[in-house]
Simulated scan of single mutants.
Amino acid sequence: MIANLYRTRKRAIPDRAPISFAPKGWMLLILQDGKIDRRAYELCLFSELKRPLDAGDVWVEGRSGFQSFESFPNSQADV
């Protein structure tokens, strides 16, 4: 969804955007007057994605830096 906003150059986050990933502390910043604040939404989204990306729990298809755990070579086979 974020990539699509950048591609289409739209500024507003759609009302149907998921916010269930956001911790309670972020909710006051994300929801401003009943609307989603884009800057706070993006900051929260990327900060919440950092840990799972680093751990290999989620990955970015086609990127070498954040691959799925299964795609790494088996280090035990070389021993």
Rank of each mutant, 00 (worst) to 15 (best):
M1V: 07
I2C: 13
A3L: 10
N4G: 12
N4H: 14
N4P: 00
Y6S: 07
Y6A: 10
R7P: 02
T8A: 11
T8F: 10
T8W: 04
K10S: 04
I13C: 10
I13T: 04
P14I: 06
P14G: 08
P14Q: 07
R16D: 12
R16W: 10
A17G: 01
P18K: 12
I19M: 14
I19Y: 05
I19W: 02
S20L: 01
S20Y: 05
S20M: 01
F21T: 03
F21P: 03
K24G: 02
K24Y: 04
G25W: 05
W26H: 13
M27G: 00
L28S: 15
L29D: 05
L31R: 15
L31M: 15
D33E: 14
D33M: 02
D33N: 12
G34E: 01
G34R: 00
K35R: 13
I36V: 15
I36Y: 06
D37I: 06
R39L: 12
R39G: 14
A40T: 04
A40Y: 03
Y41W: 10
Y41H: 10
E42H: 05
E42P: 05
L45I: 03
L45E: 04
F46G: 04
F46Y: 15
S47I: 09
S47N: 12
L49V: 09
K50S: 11
K50N: 09
K50L: 14
R51C: 04
R51P: 07
P52D: 00
P52Y: 00
P52M: 06
D54T: 13
D57F: 09
D57R: 03
V58W: 04
V58F: 13
E61P: 03
G62E: 06
G62M: 09
R63S: 09
R63L: 00
R63C: 00
S64G: 11
S64H: 11
G65C: 09
F66R: 07
F66W: 15
F66I: 02
F66Y: 14
Q67C: 14
S68E: 12
F69T: 09
E70C: 01
E70K: 12
E70T: 08
S71I: 01
S71F: 00
S71D: 03
S71T: 03
F72C: 08
P73H: 05
N74K: 08
D78W: 08
V79S: 14
